[in-house]
Design a protein around this nucleic acid. Structure first.
Lengths: 150, 150
DNA sequence: ATAGATGCAAAACCTTTGCAATCGC
DNA sequence: GCGATTGCAAAGGTTTTGCATCTAT
């Protein structure tokens, strides 16, 4: 559940290479670029954001490569995705501690809350509905403190 | 919070006409058709589903009319939408009792849970994060009873 | 009559796909 | 060298938009 190396928030670099090799897949400059961009945003990134950043750095970079790489990284279990307020995919490193998101409908601000905080909630849903909540994919919409009054 | 007329699940027909009139907007056959389709599906409908049904009945019906009508109905506060597992919008009558959705990642089954059940959860989030949870838009992903074991 | 709605067609947007050329292993 | 991967270009699907025409009121 925890990463072996020191830093935890970004993608674990060595693991990517290892997992690729194990599957006879290749570590190309483009894949490096996507992983790099992914860890720069450190948190929740849109495919579009990744495309922008990658093409900004290398004009030859094409969107399809980003999408294919994201699919691959998901297959490898290195990233996951949730859907933001507009229904667009947001990607994030999979090895982050489980957490959910509070998303303000008014200003769009997002805030993380730890999975632990949701323990009671998860337990209750399981007890009453026999349903295992996937906390990492929980997007909770509403109004934040700032926008609450207006 | 409750509807005045008897049946509760479908869109409240008279209200639509009243709200439209109040804004000097018009009750066209197309809008009737969208509302009708909306209440037939009774629950969560995709824009695409509505487009299909409406065009099936009237070949002249165009998608843009459905989208424009859905926007309008949301403005009027008659419907709301959430995002399904694929990030696509699903519309539903707004006057339904507040409820959230349990969505199984494995089989796609959705199940409603009443807003009341989430009272503690909502309260806790509010207390700790000063965030007002919009229960009706809460999509809870995970694994249902059936798929949980596999 | 007149403001509001529709139909149509085009565009915008994001994502996927087929295929030849390329490049990591 | 072989097979995976890329770039390109085209297609896909959904949603939006402008505008002339039409219609509910």
């Amino acid at each position: 559940m925890t990463t072996r190396s020191g830093h935890s928030s970004a993608l674990d670099w060595p693991d990517v290479a290892a997992l690729l090799r194990r599957r006879n897949l290749r570590l190309t400059p483009q894949r490096r670029a996507v992983v790099a961009a992914l860890s720069e945003f450190e948190g929740h990134v849109t495919a579009t954001q990744l495309v922008e950043r990658c093409t900004a750095r290398d004009p030859h970079f094409v969107p399809s490569t980003v999408y294919r790489t994201l699919d691959l990284l998901q297959d490898l279990g290195l990233i996951t995705h949730i859907h933001d307020a507009d229904g667009h995919e947001e990607f994030q490193p999979a090895q982050e501690a489980p957490h959910a998101h509070l998303i303000c409908r008014a200003c769009g601000a997002t805030r993380e809350i730890s999975g632990d905080e949701l323990g009671d909630f998860v337990g209750q849903i399981h007890r009453r509905h026999h349903f295992d909540v996937d906390v990492s994919h929980l997007a909770i919409f509403g109004r934040c403190e700032v926008c609450g009054q207006s």
